[in-house]
Structures are given as structure tokens and as C-alpha cells.
Amino acid sequence: MPLSPVTKLYSVQDCKISPLLTDPAAGAATYGDPIDVPGIQTMAISGSMETKVLRGDNMKLASNSALTDVSVQVTHAKLSVAVLAAILGGASTAAGTTPTQTLTWDLSSDDATLPPFKLEGITPPNGVDIIGGDLHWILHKCSLSAFPDLGFAQEDFRVVSFTAAADPLISTGKWITAVLHETYTAIDDGS
């Protein structure tokens, strides 16, 4: 029996970012190794529509709408230097030996053009109506639309968040994909 196209969506268990390496007009997009978004809390997808209305004879005659924008807002509990490098660019450098090791991430003026990336999130098993199943949301080509929410909070945990604009792939035209699995399937780790 085919899967029902109707389901609940409960929680988010995992989210990964993969740098977009190529998106040729003829061929398939290629991605770098997936990077875990640590402590994923929310992945909210929204869009904008433009509607044109045709009026005449003192009344509405027709209307047409077109999707003009898709965006995603992500909140996660822990800072990841690898995620920052994937969405903002920059470089990280490890130095020293125990007990004086450091890990430094630098964003420089050379990083003014932000890198594109794929974003994929998944429900936990049973996060959909199918017992043992899951749903993956995939945004194939994203880039930051605002600087990430970083920093500290007085006497509290500071969560990290970012907002990205999605674009359709040049190679396939895909913008968003939802994949409902009958059996829980982890996000591909690239290996």
C-alpha cells in the first residue's frame, strides 16, 4: 500500500549543512561532506508569494500568483566553528598542544561573498504518522540572508541562529524536497 501523503510533523532530531561545490546547468549538483548542526532546536521554512490581480469592468477578473522567495530559519543550541565556516566562509586554525590548545575561526574582508550550502533536517523516528518512519526537509541551495545571531547572554545559555534564503538549483530547478520514509533513515553522512 502506498504511503499516505498526509502526516503529522513532530520535533526535529538532526540537521546537517553540506557545502554546495558545483551546480552546473548540465549535470548534477555536488556537495561537500555534511556538517552537523549541533543541538538543532528549530528549522522553520517560509516563503513569499507575489499575486497579480486583473481588474476590468469594475470587478476582479482573474489573479495569478508566483512563488518569489523561500527562506529558512534555524536555531541550534551549540556553536559550531565548522557550521560558521560553511555558511559564512572564513577559516579555522587549530594550534598548540594540551593543555594550551586553541581553535580559532577568522572571518576576513576576503569572505564578503557567502558560500552556498544545502540544508537538511529530519524528524525523529515516529515523528510522522508512520510508526518508525521519518520526514526529511531538504533545501538544496541556500545562502545566508542575515548575519547569524551569535554572542553571549547574561546568566543564561546563548543559542545560535541563522536565516538563509533558498534558491532553485541551476542543474535541476529543485528548491525544496520533502521525503517521507516508511522506515527511519538517517541523513546521509557523505561516506
Rank of each mutant, 00 (worst) to 15 (best):
G47V: 10
A91S: 15
P125A: 15
D106P: 05
A165H: 15
E182Y: 14
D14N: 15
T98S: 11
D110W: 03
G132V: 04
A146L: 07
I130D: 02
I187Y: 00
I176Q: 04
S46F: 03
R158Y: 14
A164I: 01
A112D: 04
A26W: 13
I87P: 03
K78I: 02
C142N: 08
L88Y: 13
I17D: 05
P99N: 09
L139P: 08
T113G: 04
G90H: 14
G27W: 12
A112F: 09
L67D: 03
A82G: 00
V160H: 02
D57V: 07
A25F: 11
T100R: 07
S63T: 07
T97E: 06
H140F: 08
Q101P: 00
P34F: 08
L150C: 01
H136S: 10
T30V: 12
D33Y: 01
L139F: 00
D106N: 15
H136V: 05
I131P: 09
I130G: 01
Y10A: 12
Y184K: 12
I131T: 11
P125Y: 13
I131V: 13
E155N: 15
F157Y: 14
T93S: 15
K141A: 00
T177Q: 14
D134C: 12
Y10D: 05
V74S: 00
A26M: 15
G173H: 06
L20S: 15
T123H: 04
A62W: 01
I45P: 03
S161E: 01
K52I: 14
V74H: 02
G173Y: 02
D156E: 15
L114C: 07
S48W: 08
D111R: 08
S46L: 04
I122Q: 03
L54H: 08
A153Y: 07
P99H: 10
I170W: 02
Q13W: 09
P34I: 12
D57A: 05
T177N: 09
A29H: 13
L9T: 14
V6K: 14
G132R: 07
K16H: 13
A91H: 07
A86T: 03
S145A: 15
L21R: 15
S161Q: 10
S4Q: 11
H140N: 12
T177P: 07
T22K: 15
G89L: 11
L139D: 00
F117H: 06
F147T: 08
E120S: 12
V179C: 02
I170Q: 06
T183C: 01
H140P: 09
W137Y: 06
H76W: 04
T102P: 13
F157I: 08
V83S: 04
T68C: 04
T177C: 10
D33G: 02
G173E: 03
T177L: 11
G89D: 15
T93D: 13
L144H: 11
F147M: 10
S161V: 00
T102V: 11
F147A: 09
S109D: 14
S71M: 10
E155A: 13
T104C: 04
L144I: 12
T42A: 10
Y184C: 07
L150G: 03
D23K: 13
I87M: 11
P115C: 11
A82N: 05
V159E: 08
H181M: 08
V179E: 04
R55N: 13
L139N: 03
L9E: 12
W105M: 10
D189M: 11
A153D: 12
